[in-house]
Design a protein around this nucleic acid. Structure first.
Lengths: 124, 124
DNA sequence: CAGTATATCGTACATTTGTACAAGCTGTCA
DNA sequence: TGACAGCTTGTACAAATGTACGATATACTG
């Protein structure tokens, strides 16, 4: 099994990668259209980011007409796992509990979220 | 109230900042000593990172003997809040539930934790 | 007081990141 | 078929990042 370590994701790359995941398959234009309203960033920049994501191994593409259609080259799960892991290490020394507490105490998650979550984990 | 927006933290800076928080007050040497075993990074590099953290406004220092003693210049809480917020935005579009879910599914957090969490948020 | 161990300071430098323009292809529609 | 809208490619470039050396300053120790 080739569990090779892809080059790290930069913040902006992560932001773009998330949108590709969301769209499943996406052209540069598609990604641009999905950018949050306030995000002022040019088509060309999105394109560069997608190019880099592909070079780094996170995306692949096929051609449709004259456009590139990008899609995930590695499982989202795996990327999330690593990103969260790295983040946890850096900010909390790897201990997830403080993060959870933070989320709870700062209203990032509310009672409803907990309910949903409870259902999710119970089901497992 | 001066809620100014400090320059973003880089991953390595975050890593070092966490150690200063942990130590409360720390010299370059102290930080080096707290680095996890595998982390190969020179004294000089740690020093640069601390310098940058101070320039960015996250740390301040006073002198003790010939050494600088660094400590937090802004509340850890505030930094955490922003870091987690940014991270959540980039990777999950701001929705914390998938993150919690990830934590849950990887055995980092179990049903009991969620129960406690529920109580925590209910009480608020 | 002079030497030594320990600090900081100034600086450097290759990469990565964020951002984007300009030039050159290529479907498509009139 | 020829022009045009829409894409990609090549390239650029300043700023941030990760990493660290060499020179200089300074507190202790004998």
């Amino acid at each position: 099994m080739t569990k090779r370590r892809l080059p790290a994701l930069s913040p902006s790359e992560t932001e773009i990668l998330r949108l590709v995941w969301l769209l499943d398959k996406a052209t540069v234009q598609n990604v641009c259209d999905k950018l949050p309203a306030g995000r002022k960033i040019s088509y060309a920049t999105v394109q560069t980011l997608l190019r880099r994501l592909e070079k780094k191994g996170y995306l692949k593409h096929h051609i449709r007409g004259k456009a590139h259609v990008f899609s995930a080259a590695v499982k989202r799960e795996a990327v999330i796992k690593r990103s969260v892991g790295d983040f946890l290490d850096r900010l909390f020394g790897g201990d997830p509990v403080p993060l959870m507490q933070y989320l709870a105490e700062h209203g990032k998650i509310d009672a409803d979220d907990i309910e949903r979550l409870k259902r999710l984990t119970d089901k497992k």
